[in-house]
Computed example of a mutant assay.
Amino acid sequence: MTSKTKSLVYCGLFTALIAVGAFIKIPIPVVPFTLQYLFTMMAGLLLGPRLGALAVTFYMVLGLIGLPIFAEGGGIWYIFKPSFGYIIGFIAGTFVTGYIAQQMKKKSVINYLLANLAGLFFVYAIGMIYYYIICNFVINTPIAVWPLFLYCFILAVPGDLALSILGALMVKRVKPILGIEAIAMKSRA
């Protein structure tokens, strides 16, 4: 299989995994806990910044054109859901995670975890800012900063921290088996 074909297959695979991850969820107030973050982070770690972010972008576009692959459906109207900012954050977080992982000299679980946490910062920063703007200025359901911080960070982040650890452990084991290192390196060019 050629490198471009392999890249396209892996990109499509992660797009599908992210969609499946949206349906594996634990309901918590405001923003549901899903496995999307696990697969977006792994896309960055395994495919690199560009291909990983591309897989997440494909996921977002497919949901916006109407496929019900987001945690609560799909369609262009989804941009008015306060939680849509997290999907945008997944793109940035995946790119950051992949970029940091690609630059590291030692491919250790700790370094993968640090890359995951850096990406997670962007997911939450973009997601919470978007949530605040949509609620307060677009759909007229005001939310103050403390409830936003409580529901969209404090209640949600423990699960994502656990997924960050799990993802770092999984990637350390899976990367050599799949031979993905070559794909991530070629996607740099």
Rank of each mutant, 00 (worst) to 15 (best):
F39K: 01
F39L: 03
M41C: 12
M42S: 12
A43H: 05
A43P: 03
A43Y: 05
L45I: 10
G48V: 03
R50F: 14
R50E: 11
R50D: 06
G52V: 02
L54F: 14
L54D: 02
T57A: 14
F58G: 11
Y59I: 07
Y59Q: 08
Y59S: 04
L64C: 08
L64K: 02
I65K: 07
L67C: 06
P68L: 02
I69P: 05
F70L: 08
E72I: 13
G73M: 07
I76E: 08
W77K: 14
I79S: 04
I79A: 02
F80E: 09
S83C: 10
F84T: 08
I87L: 12
I88T: 08
I88E: 04
I88H: 03
F90M: 07
I91Q: 07
A92M: 10
F95Y: 15
V96G: 00
I100T: 01
I100K: 09
A101R: 09
Q102Y: 15
M104R: 11
M104K: 12
K105Y: 08
K105F: 07
K106N: 14
K106L: 14
V109W: 08
V109A: 13
I110W: 14
N111W: 06
Y112V: 10
L113H: 08
A115M: 09
N116A: 15
N116P: 00
L117Q: 00
L117A: 06
L117H: 04
A118P: 03
A118E: 05
A118G: 05
L120I: 11
L120Q: 13
L120K: 00
L120W: 03
F121K: 05
F121V: 13
F121R: 01
F122N: 02
I129Q: 00
I129M: 11
I129S: 12
Y131P: 09
Y132M: 09
Y132S: 09
Y132N: 08
I133K: 01
I134Y: 07
C135L: 15
N140T: 15
A144T: 11
V145D: 02
W146A: 13
W146E: 12
F149E: 10
F149I: 12
L150Q: 15
C152A: 14
C152T: 11
